[in-house]
Simulated scan of single mutants.
Amino acid sequence: MPDARPEPIQIVFLLFPGITQLDFTAPAQALSRMPGATLAGAAATIAPIATDSGFSILPTHDFASCPQADILCVPGGHGVAEALGDAATIDFIARQAAGARSTTSVCTGAFLLGRAGLLAGKRATTHWGYTHLLPLVGAEPVAGRVVEDGNIVTSGGVTSGLDFALTLIARLQGDTVAQAIQLAIEYDPAPPFTGGHPDRTPAAVTAGLKARVYDAAAARMEEALKT
């Protein structure tokens, strides 16, 4: 007998100006290969969205026309600080999360979940440069690339989105499906350097990056969270 048709799964990604494209495209690539999956990218309008990589992406829906998510994913990026003050964006997250089976974030997208009231009392993670700010949205910071607390799944910075996607696929459809997708996209990390997190990176490299980027970026995020 032929296999039963897979259960339809609607996956919705929030899109906003200044998004980190890999926060979106990495988990989208893995999740799109899950049997039954349909992806939507929702923004305030269907105009092109400028990413942090110098190119734009096109939403498939605006907030009003977006279907209800089974899985809601909120990516991060330097544009999060502005998005925190956009009532339509926060309302969209809250409305979609109310009907979703899983609500998820990559990187600083966690703060948008927090602003929508979804992380109060929850264990969560985000990019290492911003973890100390999670209590401002009522979350308990936890070290880890992927942190699950009930139907809330948060992940660390940028490339952690692939780990989150495979974790979620395994939860929904089993390890074999997740492993097949990991193989299909040849996700077999073998970076040229030991590092990628302050715990495993030379202190001078971490200090230099914080001084150039993340001290100011975290201060800007903190100001936006307190507004």
Results as ranks from 00 to 15, higher is better:
188 D>E: 12
190 A>K: 10
182 Q>I: 05
207 A>Q: 15
222 E>D: 10
13 F>N: 02
123 R>Y: 03
5 R>C: 11
130 Y>E: 01
22 L>Y: 09
61 H>R: 07
28 A>R: 00
66 C>Q: 07
145 R>A: 07
185 I>G: 06
213 V>E: 06
172 L>Q: 06
133 L>R: 10
125 T>H: 06
1 M>N: 13
203 A>Q: 15
28 A>L: 01
207 A>M: 11
213 V>R: 11
90 I>C: 10
125 T>S: 13
181 I>P: 01
125 T>I: 07
149 D>V: 05
55 F>N: 08
171 R>H: 12
224 A>T: 06
35 P>L: 09
200 R>K: 07
29 Q>P: 00
6 P>T: 13
133 L>G: 03
65 S>N: 11
18 G>A: 12
220 R>D: 11
223 E>Y: 07
156 G>E: 00
122 K>W: 02
44 A>G: 14
77 G>R: 00
11 I>W: 02
215 D>Q: 15
17 P>M: 07
211 A>R: 15
8 P>Q: 12
62 D>L: 10
213 V>Y: 15
183 L>Q: 09
130 Y>N: 05
4 A>M: 13
139 A>T: 05
32 S>F: 02
160 S>N: 08
188 D>Q: 12
39 L>H: 13
160 S>R: 00
102 S>H: 14
7 E>M: 12
41 G>H: 08
181 I>S: 01
32 S>I: 01
209 L>M: 14
86 D>H: 14
220 R>P: 01
106 V>G: 00
186 E>C: 07
83 A>I: 02
89 T>W: 04
125 T>F: 00
151 N>H: 10
150 G>I: 07
84 L>Q: 04
174 G>Q: 10
44 A>L: 15
159 T>N: 09
60 T>F: 09
210 K>E: 15
134 L>S: 06
153 V>D: 00
176 T>M: 11
176 T>W: 07
135 P>T: 14
87 A>H: 12
174 G>I: 08
147 V>M: 03
202 P>W: 08
59 P>Y: 06
